[in-house]
């Protein structure tokens, strides 16, 4: 077998390892769905009536539609914490030293973590969208638009997960790893996730419009609900691809050096 096909085999082995581990440790996955659902319920039923009026009428029903993309991204940011912790604690295990003394593709250890987390998060997202439907989420997207939204969200998940893996590798302990991705959880709030950016004071608005989460949320919202997308799609894709590539190289570099 060629080096490339051996590397592919190592990747699939490590992905299976990670999926088995996730199944053995289901509380992480449950939390992954529960946290965004609780935030969704709070925002829809507590703040939703008033915030919905501020969107230009429509009350709670309009607000459910508005907030779902932000909730989805927040779910990804929350999951990043879990991924960073998992990677950091995996690195403290003797099994990683064993992998390093074996003739295998080294990046496969990390790829296993990333693909496992991405699959976990996409399933989690599907569950969140299902619950959002029950709460009154009514998108008007065509099949193609759904597919495009799913594609962008997947790319976003891949980017954030590689970043989380790099942060997890850089952390000296699993406890430190749980803090590193924290700022990501704030980004949906400091963007167009929960309220439109034009309602914010100037400095905050400037930040909100140029940070990477906003174009992703704007694009997903546009694809699912028909709001204008403008150039958000291209900007979102560029951000995700850039973060993914840089984080991948960063993570690989840290892992090879350690």
């Amino acid at each position: 077998m060629s080096t490339l096909s051996l590397a592919m085999r190592d990747n699939s082995t490590m992905i299976r390892r990670q999926l088995k581990r996730l199944l053995r440790y289901p509380s992480m996955t449950v939390q992954l769905v529960a946290t965004p659902v609780i935030i969704l319920i709070v925002f829809v039923y507590v703040f939703g009536g008033t915030l919905g009026e501020g969107l230009g009428g429509g009350g709670r029903d309009a607000y459910v539609n508005y907030v779902v993309p932000g909730i989805l991204l927040m779910a990804v940011a929350t999951a990043a914490t879990g991924t960073a912790v998992m990677v950091a604690s995996d690195m403290t295990e003797g099994i990683i030293a064993r992998f390093r003394t074996m003739r295998i593709s080294r990046a496969s250890v990390l790829t296993g973590h990333v693909v496992g987390s991405v699959i976990q998060q996409l399933l989690g997202m599907a569950a969140v969208i299902g619950i959002a439907f029950a709460l009154g989420f009514r998108p008007n997207a065509t099949a193609v638009e759904w597919l495009a939204a799913a594609g962008l969200l997947t790319l976003f998940v891949v980017a954030v997960t590689w970043l989380a893996v790099a942060l997890g590798l850089r952390s000296p302990t699993p406890e430190a790893a749980s803090n590193a991705p924290m700022p990501l959880i704030l980004l949906p709030f400091l963007g167009s996730g929960f309220v439109p950016t034009d309602s914010m004071p100037t400095v905050l608005r400037w930040f909100a419009e140029y940070q990477p989460f906003t174009p992703v949320m704007e694009t997903v919202r546009g694809l699912l609900l028909g709001t204008p997308i403008g150039n958000s799609g291209a900007i979102a894709t560029a951000w995700c691809a850039g973060v993914a590539v840089i984080s991948y190289l960063w993570a690989k570099n840290i892992f090879n050096k350690a």
Binding site: R17, R21, E93, I95, A97, R98
Partner: peptide, 10 residues
């Protein structure tokens, strides 16, 4: 090694 290099979740 002296610390067991097994995957404890598997």
């Amino acid at each position: 090694g002296q610390y067991s290099a097994v995957d404890k979740l598997l």
